[in-house]
Amino acid sequence: MSTTVVNAGPDNQTWTGGNEPLKASYGKMMMWFFIVSDALTFSGFLAAYGFSRFKFIDSWPIADEVFTHFPFLHGVDAPMYYVAFMTFVLIMSSVTMVLAVDAGHHLNKSKVTIYMFLTIIGGLVFVGSQAWEWNTFIKGEYGAVKTKGGNILQFVDTEGHRVAIGDFAIADGHADRIQHERKDGLWFVSEGSLPSFSVEEVLSGLQANDNILVRTQLLTEEGAKTVLSRDESINLIKTYGVKVVEGANLQENEYGSPLFADFFFFITGFHGFHVLSGVILNIIVFFNVVVGTYERRRSYEMVEKVGLYWHFVDLVWVFVFTFFYLV
C-alpha cells in the first residue's frame, strides 16, 4: 500500500480503486463522516439549550439544586456526585473499549472478548443510571405553584432550605376533586393525574405556618434565587397562583422554566439513545469476536470502528455534563 504513489505513467493505479489517500479504510472513513455529522446534531441541541438559557438568563434553574440525589441516600444533599459517577463509568468503558481495540491489533481473541464484555457492562450501567436519573427528575421532590404567567414559585423556610408542599399544606377533605377519566364521560376527554394539593390548600398552609416563604425564579446578583417576605409571599400565591406542579414533564416542571425540562429530556434522551445503540452494536461485535469471525478475517478492524462510535458517545457526554450540570 505504501507503494501507491501518484505519478503520470499510463500504468498508475490512482484511479483503479484500492487507493487510500488518507491511509484510513473505507469503513473507518465513513465512521468519521458519521461522527462529524452527529457531532453537529448534538451541538445543535446544546446550542439551542444555550439560546433558551440566554433568553431566560435571569431566571434559569440552578442545576446543583435540581440534581441532588444519590441512590440509596435519601434526604442527603449530594449535588453532582451521581453525574460524576456516571461520567466516570462512561470514561471507564471507553478505556476498556480502547484496550479491546489494542488487543485486536495483536490478534488476541481472548483479551478482546473480555474487554468487549466489560465495555458492554459499562454501557448498561450508564443507561441504567440515566433511567434512574430520569425517574428522580420526573417524580420531583418538593413541588411548586405555577402562576398565571407560567412562572414557578417554590417554598423555603426562613433559613433558605427548601420545603416540600406536602409538609405544610393543609388538606381540605371536602374539596377533593376526582380525576376525570375517559370511562366517566366523553370517551375522548380525559386529564392527567391531579396534583396532591390544590392552590387553596397550599395557601391555607402558608398562612398557618409563619416560617414558610415563597422563592421566585429570579436570580439575585449573587446568583441565588430571590426569597420574598411573608406578606409578598401570601399575596403572590393568593393573586397569581393557579396550579400545583409536582415533578416534571414536557409542559411544566417544578424546577423552573419548562424549557429546562424539555432540553433535559431531549438532550440526555438523545444521548441515552446513542448509548443504547452503542451497546447493541457492541453486543453484535462481541458475539462476532466470540464465534471467531474476525479471527478468520485476521483483522479486528470492526472492533476499531465500533470503538470510534463508542468514544464519540463518551465525548458527547463530556459536553452534556459540562453544559447541563456544571456551567
Partner: peptide, 29 residues
C-alpha cells in the same frame, strides 16, 4: 489531512452556530 478535515470542519461550524444562537438569545432576553 483526515485530522484537519474532521476537526476544523467541526470546530468552525459549531463555533459559528454557538455564536449566532447565543447572541440571539441575549438579544431576546
Amino acid at each position: 489531512g483526515l485530522r484537519r478535515a474532521v476537526v476544523w470542519t467541526g470546530i468552525f461550524l459549531i463555533a459559528y452556530l454557538t455564536f449566532i444562537l447565543l447572541e440571539e438569545g441575549g438579544y431576546v432576553f
